[in-house]
Write a protein that binds this DNA or RNA. Structure first.
Lengths: 348, 348
DNA sequence: CTGAAAGCGCTTACAG
DNA sequence: CTGAAAGCGCTTACAG
């Protein structure tokens, strides 16, 4: 006769406060349907017993798992932890949780299909989007809710809603800041085989230089996204009268290499050669001098993703990056510049 | 009359191959109960229709969610991504998934309780264990399955099963390696307010020095776990005839500071002053010269956690760290040492 | 070895 | 505003 489990069911709540289970259900899901006195009575019983609806029972009848799948993959991205944390928060607002799974790039889609077949998730957040992404096509074709973090490049059409950082825009901000510091000869440091996102940053650099009336950036390409490779490639570019005075790295890793090349050439990073990176990694912050970088505004990104999971008809969202000025290039942020210019205007 | 959803139910499979739903259920859960011919027939229908049991329906009737909760929290630990990936793999073996959630340290327990009340998870993997951890006590008291990654220190009793890295053992390995390189004056670099885990590493250093007949390590304490703080504190320790020739850092961050102090003192990191860190972070690898560090063997850790989730009576598990030798202290690994000594034995 | 019955805990129409 | 009925998809005893 003793209950085997400590779980409190809707039935028990109903008995406890002398109403039917349906009324308890209404108290939870449609409180406005109940008379105030009834509602108060039921709610007292609910909190008193610590009742919470069983998720699986709800899922069964509603056909919604209240869970969004996300695939993690090895790799030392410190960014991912913060991203996942932010994603949990953004989804919690709509009562959803993150179901984590892992799979190789090739197997990911079939794991997604399994999760869907088992009704373990309602949809997915996709990261590491590639050109002509088969996950996007597959999910889109079946009407499965999903939102991608990242764009596809090279003109291939993108299925479904997406959110991405405006890399070009952020780098344009950086270049603007460098120009404000007096820099006129700017190099963009990329690497062979870099992603579409890195190329986008390069375009932002070129555009900004043009808009500011500067010469086009000197594009230096390292053999790999690696400090050593970047150092080697940049060293050659640092000699001569027309050598750049500022190096915009496509990644923090490349920027570290740039800083080393500067030191090797007897240049002080910051005063003699400005260096900036991208991603605001711990690496950038721990460098000496610390590297100016660009941070992804996670909250805006995950909020956009959560929104698009709800409404797949929403357009792609480009989120502005946050420039984080440090000693390697103490540029003024957009906020500081506008403050100064308004101050100047007030002084007139 | 058209089905609203693409889901395939057990009923449809049963109809398709002319058996009852119970037989299909048996084919999935107790194949040995079926005649071979029946089994083959049902299986063909299952794969043909792409049937997979609905997880929520299973959860309802079995009372098991097949999900383990894990709380992520902001912080730039690059380690976490790999840990989560490995955890997914380890739990997948027993058909479980990782349900991710986030909460502040104070709220975490109440979120755990909610998840349990909703039967969204069967148990938890706990990280960031603190002394006298209330999560452990609470879960243990209710008989909820959980496994902790990390030990409690300062003598407070630990509830439930745990897995942890043997930090003392790993540092002892490091010291042994340094001794093999000829180092006799060793410093241990810690920081004020460091965790029990860091102190454990310090104990490992002291023990190893004693066992090798060396003088006790010089313990240097930085004001924070920060390269700048470490550099300041160590700089003073680097002067004089009896200055250490090797610095064992309690963390990679501290080791970075040690390397800077060495450079500032005109010492070459590696040849003049050996430096080692802990965690094998990207920071350590990207340093120049690259820093010797200790890696946590994730697969062994998560396997131990998964095992303990199943069987809470298992003892705590101490996992050996993996020493990763790099230029900052090119020590021999345990494997290399045993190879050499056996080679020497063979040559006798 | 196979099948009809009961029930897991909830919600969604539908009567009163 | 409230309650009795049906059903979500599955599995677990229990007969045949």
């Amino acid at each position: 006769m003793v209950k085997r489990t400590g779980r409190v069911t809707i039935e028990e709540v109903a008995t406890a406060c002398g109403v039917s289970r349906q009324t308890v259900s209404n108290a939870v899901n449609f409180p406005e349907r109940l008379a105030e006195s009834t509602l108060a009575k039921v709610r007292a019983a609910i909190t008193g017993l610590g009742y919470q609806p069983d998720r699986s029972a709800r899922t069964m009848v509603r056909g919604q798992a209240g869970q969004i799948g996300f695939c993690v993959r090895n790799g030392r991205s410190e960014f991912m932890t913060s991203f996942l944390t932010a994603l949990c928060v953004a989804l919690a607002d709509r009562g959803s949780h993150v179901l984590l799974f892992t799979a190789s790039r090739e197997d990911e889609l079939s794991v997604c299909a399994d999760l869907l077949a088992q009704r373990a998730v309602d949809g997915f957040v996709l990261a590491d989007v590639v050109d002509d992404d088969e996950r996007q096509r597959w999910l889109h074709g079946r009407g499965v809710p999903f939102a991608s973090f990242g764009r596809t490049w090279s003109g291939s059409a993108q299925s479904g809603p997406w959110v991405d950082l405006d890399g070009a825009g952020a780098i344009a901000e950086v270049v603007l800041g460098l120009h404000g510091l007096g820099h006129e000869r700017i190099a963009f440091l990329d690497w062979t085989g870099s992603s579409g996102a890195a190329k986008d940053r390069g375009r932002g650099c070129a555009t900004a230089c043009r808009d500011l009336g500067l010469a086009p950036p000197l594009v230096v390409e390292a053999a790999a996204d690696d400090p050593a490779a970047a150092e080697v490639s940049l060293r050659r570019a640092l000699v001569g009268d027309s050598a750049p005075t500022a190096v915009v790295g496509a990644t923090d890793t490349l920027a570290v290499g740039a800083a080393r090349a500067a030191s090797a050439a007897g240049l002080r990073v910051g005063p003699d050669l400005a260096v900036t990176g991208f991603d605001d990694s711990a690496l950038a912050a721990a460098q000496q001098p610390a590297l100016t970088s660009v941070r992804q505004p996670l909250d805006a990104i995950v909020a956009g993703l959560a929104e698009r999971l709800r409404d797949p008809t929403l357009d792609g969202l480009l989120v502005a990056g946050e420039v984080v000025p440090r000693e390697s290039a103490p540029i003024a942020t957009a906020a500081e510049r506008s403050r100064e210019s308004s101050g100047a205007a007030a002084g007139r």
